[in-house]
Design a binder for these strands. Structure first.
Lengths: 154, 154
DNA sequence: CAATTAAAGAAATATTCTTTTCTTTGATCG
DNA sequence: CGATCAAAGAAAAGAATATTTCTTTAATTG
């Protein structure tokens, strides 16, 4: 399957909106019968168009009052520093995402914390301890106008 | 339900990792019987701890080669400018998330685009057209070290 | 220690789902 | 136009699921 049909992108869209849709319901939404719908969905999973399914939780209700974007700058880019950094980031559950970016900073991290104390501890104990870091710039989220991870397909 | 038990956070964790887990499988992972497991899961849904379920798609396979973080600065903050801005952002599917943040910029957006041309069009046709915008700073993702939206609960 | 209450477990059932196989349709190409 | 091929649809069957009700356990409190 090289290119996706309209049906495929429709399926992906529905599954982005409700990851627990059963095949039967999905098929009825698409006004098609269950067998081809099932085959397509399975193919989209097997070929990796769908990476995973997950429940989206309410961050605040679970006590994560702080969401921050952190820009990190490194003084040098030798492979050892990088390896240490990657290891720390991957093992740190507070870091939701981390991108190597263009711009003045080298990395942009998305971080959650229970509160400002917790966040400050993370900065001090985790980020400042990283070798080679020369600048840490924090941008705290004051208000979430929009928070999605749905790709605009179809 | 004011406070969550270990079982509840375990359930949330499993559902974060696999949103399609059936109640039976979830219960067996937790080594408990199905009925209390089912009741707890339903309560977590009803009380909003679980906001939604979704399929996570492969951005690159779906042709979104560009992921960018855009910092926006406004010259003024009157309610009209803000209202226009919020409307545009919410209706724009390319914008995955948008936060009002601390720091020199006012907003931080996460944006996807098919390619750099597409991205540049978005900047010109959507962001630059917004009234009151004085600065637009783009940070393109060069490499995704980590991309998750799983909260570190439990 | 007995009584009460809340949550866990067991069991049962009806519904719903998945998944297969076979048939039909529709498009493509010689 | 007929043959071929791929995808769609129908049907079916068993398996798995959700959900209820009833029972048991365990913890708490007077």
């Amino acid at each position: 399957m090289n290119t996706l049909t309209k049906i495929d992108t429709d399926i992906l869209n529905y599954m982005q909106r409700d990851g627990r849709l059963t095949n039967a319901k999905l098929a009825s939404k698409l006004a098609m019968s269950e067998s081809p719908c099932w085959r397509r969905l399975r193919r989209l999973e097997e070929e990796g168009y769908i990476e995973s399914y997950q429940a989206n939780l309410d961050r605040r209700k679970l006590g994560f009052g702080v969401l921050a974007f952190v820009q990190l700058t490194f003084i040098e880019h030798d492979s050892k520093t990088t390896a240490i950094f990657e290891g720390v980031i991957k093992n740190c559950d507070q870091v939701l995402s981390c991108h190597n970016t263009t711009g003045d900073a080298d990395f942009l991290l998305q971080v959650v914390a229970k509160n400002l104390d917790d966040y400050s501890q993370f900065i001090d104990n985790t980020l400042r301890k990283l070798p080679g870091v020369t600048a840490i710039r924090s941008n705290l989220s004051l208000r979430e106008l929009k928070a999605s991870s749905r790709l605009p397909i179809g």
